[in-house]
Design a protein around this nucleic acid. Structure first.
Length: 587
RNA sequence: GCGCGGUUAGCUCAGUUGGAUAGAGCGUUGGCCUCCGGAGCCAAAGGUCACAGGUUCGAAUCCUGUACCGCGCACCA
């Protein structure tokens, strides 16, 4: 691709002029006077070469000028920028490249040869997915898709906390609701799950088992309530993910770690490495850390000592307990055992998508892995920040306590999965933002989702119109150089150039784990097209009596449409061929 | 008190990893349909990039400190 070619040429130039290698950037400048591509290579080299940047730039420019089939003009400007203008032929080649690659345009053709695990959602199976899970779910899904396109072998995993306190509380909540269904007056425990879905699960239990648990002891009913609770909740979670278009390849059960003794194995490993000690409390904790206003103080009375892991040696604030005094491992022990399996399973890169409220876990997990002498640089965490939901210009508040939750499935039903995805992915993961429901529903230009999809539909219509007029685009095989040579407008040049940047955008979005870059690219590309389309609607129409010109422009439109389609589908957003006009508002 | 994230136009957010004159959408004001989709486009107004230092050819971007906002700081998961 063009960007890659330029990159290679600059590398060669640096090599042959100075016998060096350097990290430089290639920009597509917004100012057209600065050419199609600009590089800071000369400025980066000043320290290595010990010469003024402009001198270096001139030397590199001289090298670059020899590649006249790709590069038309090279200029040195400002403090030492090298501005490169490419030949029209090179730009025309990207049209052919796009059409030849089709749906695979933008994807890395050669595999990276690396296995990546992306873990996301990992919601407790104690209830349905709600808005709090949505952002992480969409980001995790999009990051996975991007990494796949970048040539990685990706596994998408959901870790299920199917043992422990929370699910026991769920079991108990179900049982209480079950008794209620038989006419009993119940009082929910204060930590019980109040949601209506618990009643639904209780109904299923009643349907399947009748009244057989009414007289049973807790030891008897609990396993059954737990099992049916997990089954029903996981079923609901799967359904929600499916309607949201979020894929999961692998469901990893915390319970399986216990069954396979992974946790006791882990503890043995730590013990052999001398990383454990028995104590009443973590060594070295002082009162400064355990302040009155720290949350820890509120639970001090529950701390009874046990086996500690020396995480403080590896960057954690303090050592963490792994096994309680009664021999029961804590959640962290299972989580560390889980993360160890990621290394055991041979992944080269492991990504956890966390909500901001779990960011506190990161140092512990890293420390736990380093204590096992594993390379924690292979672990990477994407923290998605909180989202405020806005309706009618007001923040919508939720509270689990009162059962006031907004479900992921409700969101999809209300605004559709394309809009939900687009809006969640539009923002950088690590910034908070306001999610405006009214805007998302609006089928108008204020809504970036529709703006972008509309652009795609508009291109599709153009190709349909051409077909109706008997001037349909004949495809790559029949595309002639003469037709492409007709693309001479500055806007056309710009769009061709942007299109050529797409594979680079995919790589950048993937490697930086920032899907929003892709959507900004989409909006940018589509904006160019809308401008072009409107500006020339009277003078330079795509479909005209000039057969060659029409062929060239249709080829460009087909390539643009393909690029936009690929960009959107890489994020799981649909690219419609046709969109219905909104109904006129009756006034 | 400590840790993580944030602070850029009236609002919501970008800013290509340190580059050229800081951008987009919405909102405001004013324009553009004999037309391949006006669901669009063009133009104008709007900025002390939170504040103060520092690093260098060059800082919204990097380092330090301060202020404010969010999240977290449990032997819950």
């Amino acid at each position: 691709m063009l960007h890659g070619q330029i990159d290679a040429l600059i590398k060669d130039a640096i090599q042959s002029a100075f016998n060096q290698a350097a990290e430089f950037t290639i920009d597509a400048p917004k100012n057209p006077e600065h050419g199609d591509f600009a590089t800071n290579a000369a400025m980066v080299l000043t320290k290595l070469v010990q010469k003024p940047p402009r001198v270096i730039a001139e030397a590199l420019a001289e090298q670059l000028r020899s590649h006249s089939q790709v590069i038309a003009k090279v200029e040195v400007a400002g403090p030492g920028f090298i501005n490169i203008t490419v030949t029209r032929e090179a730009l025309y080649q990207t049209v052919r490249d796009v059409l030849a690659a089709g749906d695979r345009f933008g994807q890395q053709e050669k595999p990276q040869g690396k296995k990546v695990l992306v873990e996301y959602v990992s919601a407790n199976p104690t209830g349905p997915l709600h808005l709090g899970h949505a952002r992480g779910a969409f980001v995790g899904d999009a990051v996975s898709r991007l990494l796949q396109a970048a040539g990685f072998a990706v596994t998408r995993e959901f870790y299920t906390n199917d043992v422990g306190n929370q699910v026991n509380i769920l079991a108990r909540s179900i049982y209480l609701r079950y008794r209620e269904l038989f006419g009993e007056n119940i009082t929910l425990d204060k930590d019980a799950y109040p949601g209506a879905y618990v009643i639904d699960i209780a109904k299923v239990l009643k349907e399947e088992d009748g009244d057989k648990w009414l007289t049973a002891s807790e030891d008897e009913w609990r396993p059954r309530c737990l099992a049916i609770g997990l089954r029903e909740n996981l079923k609901g979670i799967r359904e929600s993910l499916e309607i949201a278009g979020i894929q999961i390849d692998s469901w990893f059960s915390e319970g399986s770690l216990h069954e396979q003794n992974r946790i006791s194995e882990l503890i043995t490993s730590y013990r052999k490495l001398g990383m454990l000690y028995e104590a009443e409390r973590a060594e070295g904790t002082d009162e400064k850390i355990r302040r009155e206003d720290s949350k820890a103080a509120n639970y001090a009375h529950q701390q009874k000592g046990g086996t500690f892991l020396r995480t403080a040696q590896f960057g954690d604030e303090e050592d963490r307990i792994l096994v309680r005094a009664n021999g029961e491992p804590v959640y962290l022990a299972a989580d560390l055992a889980y993360h160890k399996t990621k290394f055991d399973r041979g992944f080269d890169w492991m990504i956890d998508v966390f909500g901001a409220d779990h960011s506190g876990h990161i140092p512990r997990i890293r420390a736990g892995m380093r204590a096992l002498e594993l390379d924690d640089k292979k672990l990477q965490f994407v923290c998605v920040q909180m989202v405020r939901l806005i309706r009618n210009g007001q923040e919508v508040k939720f509270s689990k306590r009162s059962g006031q939750i907004y479900l992921l499935s409700d969101l999809i039903e209300e605004i559709g999965s394309d809009a939900a995805r687009f809006i969640f992915l539009m923002r950088a993961p690590d910034t908070q933002f306001d999610f405006d429901l009214d805007l998302a529903i609006k089928q108008s230009s204020d809504n970036p989702v529709f703006y972008t999809q509309y652009g795609h539909a508009r291109m599709a219509t153009l190709l349909r119109r051409a077909e109706e007029a008997g001037k349909s685009f004949g495809g790559l095989a029949r595309l002639s150089d003469e037709a492409l040579a007709k693309l001479v407008l500055p806007e056309e040049r710009n769009m061709l150039k942007k299109m050529g940047l797409f594979p680079d955008v995919v790589m950048r979005s993937a490697l930086s784990l920032e899907p929003h870059r892709m959507l900004h690219y989409c909006q940018d590309l589509i904006g160019e097209f809308h401008t072009y389309f409107t500006k020339y609607r009277h003078t330079e129409r795509v479909i005209s009596d000039d057969a060659l010109l029409t062929e060239g422009r249709l080829a460009m439109v087909a390539a643009l449409k393909q690029t936009l389609h690929n960009a959107l589908s890489l994020l799981g957003i649909s690219a419609p061929e046709y969109m219905h006009a909104p109904e006129e508002k009756a006034e």
